[in-house]
Design a protein around this nucleic acid. Structure first.
Lengths: 238, 238
DNA sequence: TTGGGATAAAGTCATTTTTACTCAAAGACT
DNA sequence: AGTCTTTGAGTAAAAATGACTTTATCCCAA
């Protein structure tokens, strides 16, 4: 009586809500079958034969939202027997191995947002299917924790960005304002950003310098697991 | 064609090796069937029907080594299709949800160490079954990382301990010496230790004060997951 | 009884890191 | 030319860290 194994992914991106304010958002899919019919849920699916867990998460992401993540990491395996809370008592047990991913803003706008997929603000989710509310809550905690001690925030940005844009990412995720001067100093000291030489003109103030992040530096130190998942390896075709 | 689901646990304790030196050690079990017959492996087993993942890890631990852990946390789900590297090409695929645990020294001495169970020094392991060498390496990294930013080191100690004993735990795990004065200051500032009032007499030097750790403080902040696993709840029967 | 050995526990001090704040520079716009 | 806004550099106080010194308290041996 083996439980069913499924892979799900919590995908984070920064997008503007209906009021034009940039917020932490995630895409959800509407369920088209029981249990929890018509409720919103995390994108997910089964694990294919001979498919790696990381690969399944990436496929999943690409199939449901056509997104390519800048960062992808395993979050947790959820296997509580009552987690499905299905109306049918004899429902099959499911163990979900959940991943979390970050996508850049440009990439997020390209997301397949039709039919059964929609974006929701992370701080204002509806009642989701299964235990997905708790899963998102844990993913949010992990994101906030990692943002404060690693370089993972770069996963939200596109190729070129200003320091203000990077600081805005930190401020949105951490939900508090950061000192501009100190932020600049600490980021520059970390050595993960490289000035591209370009400047972003057009606004009625001093034009900020544009940076890119050093792809040779790991956004997050995952120890012996570092080499396993590389969402960015496709960019390094040279 | 669902993969088989298994639970394994990396159990850490501080014990004396054959030279009487305290080291980071872990119990392994010898395999009594193919594949990898007679190789040493992490204690593990199947997930029972209607059993929580955490509970399966705890049961596992108790069944194979008769140990009750001071700390138990999910480590990672390993599911690479080639991870079993079985000689038989048509071997069944196994996804392992691996936990890691800490046991106190007193508790570790009570471990069932007969027949197929033996303790090994973490820095000197033989060639293990499956991908268990890599799993232990990752668990070691996680342990060392968590020891340096959380209070998880208390999981190695018994109810009462001196500051020197606690510092010894840090030194063994982190593999470097720590300044006595600075260590005392930082631990006292963290507020997780409570003086019991007792002293440890008998040695030919000033007797050190005994402390206990504050059980109302989480050894590791796991965010929304904090309340899920409580290896210590059995102690709080009042 | 007394002094030496050993480690606990507390204190000192210079250095580094963090935090909060000030201010000139560089555009765009009126 | 003057104003507005944000960038980007600088500075001083506060806090944390690291290396080290001093004192206290026990056992033990002379």
């Amino acid at each position: 009586m083996q439980p069913t194994l499924a892979i799900s992914t919590v995908i984070f991106a920064l997008r503007e809500d209906e009021n034009g304010k940039r917020k932490l958002m995630l895409p959800l899919v509407q369920r088209i079958r029981e249990p929890h019919l018509s409720k919103w849920a995390l994108p997910g699916g089964p694990l294919n034969a001979n498919e790696d867990l990381d690969a399944a998460a990436a496929r999943n992401l690409s199939e449901t939202t056509a997104l390519e993540p800048r960062y992808l990491e395993q979050l947790y395996a959820f296997g509580n027997p009552e987690r499905s809370l299905s109306p049918a008592a004899d429902a099959e047990r499911v163990v979900s191995i959940v991943y979390w991913a970050l996508v850049g803003s440009e990439e997020a706008d390209k997301a397949a947002t039709g039919e059964n997929v929609a974006w929701f603000a992370a701080d204002c989710l509806p009642d989701l299917a299964f235990d997905h509310n708790q899963i998102v809550e844990y993913a949010l905690w992990r994101l906030r924790t990692k943002v404060s001690y690693s370089q993972v925030a770069h996963g939200f940005l596109d190729e070129e960005f200003t320091l203000s844009q990077l600081r805005e990412v930190y401020e949105i995720v951490l939900q508090r304002e950061l000192d501009k001067g100190n932020f600049r100093r600490s980021i520059e000291a970390s050595g993960v950003i490289i000035p591209t030489g370009n400047k972003l003109a057009g606004a009625s103030h001093r034009p900020p310098a544009l940076y890119t992040y050093d792809k040779s530096v790991q956004l997050v130190d995952r120890g012996p697991l570092n080499g396993t998942t590389r969402p960015h390896s496709s960019n390094r075709t040279n």
